[in-house]
């Protein structure tokens, strides 16, 4: 019987880490904290510094400055011990000429699992990913998506306290991306702490408890989605409806509006000029006609990210 729940205390505190490679400052003064059972997302485009942070967490490189502290049960470490770690690297692969079972068994045994326990865990996860029937197939016979699933299983087979997944969605079609979302939710249910990096913000915003949005090695936004929305300087948009005809030209002449887009008869999507309050904008709109609908639109993570980038005077390199 597979043990589905793991109860333990774990906390990871990263304080002001920086890392430079030759002349490139990959990570600048990044801090964050992760608690047991959380899903924590590192977000940002390629080159934002996500993988550099992950490699420091895994111990492949050391920060030039700053510290990484992990508390596990009643122990403290200044690095993440391998026995607590499950890792899916960005550069990933397994042995293509070996079967799924042989690949997973080898890695599980290296993690210290006995063969019987490893097989039991393997059965569970292969079942979850609908790969049970293909366990004796060589890895090279699988599709890229299925190979990625085997990699994900390899990262969690030994029930690690901390799972670090570098770009788990990359190279997957939307259906398989959804499967990975379900997989991550399962890890959370089993009590594992998950750190993942991604640039698919829409996918992550509904999944992560906390996130760190990065650009050019710096943190541009951090916190829960709600906190990020509160602190974010995303474009403020509102959907409005008028009880009589108001033309697009009339709206474009209002100093409070940056943009107006017609939706249906007498209904518009309006983007407010920065620094103009909602009340001031409403005052200008009411001068044109009576309003039948006013609906403030919440900026999504991507919009918040772009706005934060502008605020920090950073360029997005995609």
């Amino acid at each position: 019987m597979v043990n589905l729940l793991i109860g333990f205390f774990m906390q990871l505190i990263v304080t002001a880490i920086s890392k430079a490679y030759a002349s490139v400052q990959a990570v600048k003064q990044v801090s964050f904290q992760i608690d047991s059972g959380e899903i924590f997302a590192l977000l940002g485009p390629n080159g934002a510094g996500k993988s550099s942070i992950i490699r420091m967490l895994v111990g492949m490189t050391k920060p030039d400055s700053g510290s990484i502290m992990i508390s596990y049960q009643d122990q403290q470490f200044d690095h993440v011990p391998r026995r607590l770690l499950g890792y899916l690297p960005e550069d990933r692969g397994l042995y293509p000429d070996k079967s799924i079972e042989k690949n997973l068994l080898y890695l599980a045994q290296l993690h210290g699992l006995s063969k019987s326990v490893a097989l039991q865990e393997m059965d569970y996860w292969l079942g979850e990913f609908e790969l049970l029937e293909r366990r004796h197939d060589e890895l090279k016979q699988l599709s890229k998506g299925n190979q990625q699933k085997v990699q994900l299983i390899a990262a969690v087979l030994h029930k690690p306290a901390l799972v670090i997944l570098d770009e788990p969605f990359s190279g997957l079609d939307p259906i398989n991306q959804e499967k990975v979302v379900l997989f991550l939710q399962q890890l959370k249910q089993r009590g594992m702490t998950v750190i993942l990096s991604a640039h698919q913000m829409a996918m992550v915003e509904k999944l992560a408890d906390h996130m760190l949005l990065m650009a050019q090695g710096q943190v541009v936004l951090a916190g829960t989605l709600q906190q990020i929305q509160q602190q974010g300087q995303g474009p403020r948009e509102m959907k409005v409806g008028f009880n009589s005809a108001v033309s697009l030209e009339q709206l474009q002449q209002l100093p409070a509006l940056l943009l107006a887009q017609p939706l249906q008869a007498n209904h518009y999507m309006l983007t407010l000029v920065n620094d103009v309050g909602v009340s001031e904008c409403l005052k200008q709109l009411l001068a044109l006609a009576e309003l039948t609908q006013v609906e403030m639109q919440t900026a999504d993570l991507h919009q918040l990210y772009l706005a934060a980038m502008t605020k920090h005077n950073l360029q997005v390199t995609v």
Binding site: L85, L88, D91, Y95, L110
Partner: peptide, 13 residues
């Protein structure tokens, strides 16, 4: 080349 090393590094020294 098969990019197994980084995964192994997280398991063994």
């Amino acid at each position: 080349q098969q990019r197994v090393t980084e995964q192994l590094y997280a398991i063994v020294t």
